[in-house]
Computed example of a mutant assay.
Amino acid sequence: MTPATTAITDALPASFQNLGSAMNDLSRELGGALGIAVLGSVLGAVYRSRVDVTAPPPQLADAARSSPAAASRLGGPVADQARTAFVEAMRVTLPTGAGVVAPAAVAVALLLRRQRAGTAS
């Protein structure tokens, strides 16, 4: 991350380097927080919808639905169900993250191309 911050601040005039550094920090922290919140929500929702725990008592079933770790402590078929549900949730969550990152990467590439074309003239 340090080389990226250096590249950002070096690309700016000295009078804007503090602003560039602050915007870099803000975007990194906001992106990280939103990424964790959104992808964590997707993972949790898909896991809860896919895990089928009807055998244990209701309190244990609720714990297994809310946490793969709790389900694995129950062992047996509940742990197997939880593992399967978690893998299925990851199969949904990872492409979701990629689906957000890909358009952002394209946008950055287009903006950089436009900036380079503007400075070449």
Rank of each mutant, 00 (worst) to 15 (best):
D25P: 03
D80H: 09
D52H: 03
A61T: 01
L74M: 04
L112K: 09
V53L: 01
Y47R: 00
V108G: 06
V106W: 14
P95N: 03
L112G: 13
S72C: 02
P68C: 02
P56C: 02
G35F: 11
D80T: 10
L39A: 04
Q81N: 14
L74Y: 04
R48L: 03
T54H: 08
V38T: 06
G40H: 06
R48H: 07
V101T: 04
G32T: 07
S121R: 13
R28K: 11
G118S: 15
A104S: 14
V38W: 08
T5Y: 13
T2S: 05
D52N: 03
L112A: 14
A82Q: 00
L43R: 00
S21Q: 10
P95L: 03
V42E: 03
D80I: 09
L12P: 08
V87I: 12
T5P: 02
A71Q: 01
A82W: 03
V87C: 05
L43V: 03
S41P: 00
L111K: 13
A7K: 07
L94D: 05
R28N: 07
A69F: 09
D80L: 09
D25L: 15
T96W: 09
M1C: 06
Q59F: 11
L43G: 01
G35N: 08
R114P: 06
S67M: 00
M1S: 11
L19W: 11
Y47W: 04
T6M: 10
A98M: 09
L26I: 15
D52A: 01
G40T: 05
G97H: 03
G44C: 01
T5Q: 11
G20W: 07
G99Y: 10
V78D: 00
T119W: 15
S27Q: 12
T5N: 10
N24D: 15
A70T: 04
L111A: 15
V78E: 00
E88D: 14
S66R: 08
D52Q: 03
A107Q: 13
L43F: 10
L39I: 07
S15V: 10
R91F: 14
Q59P: 01
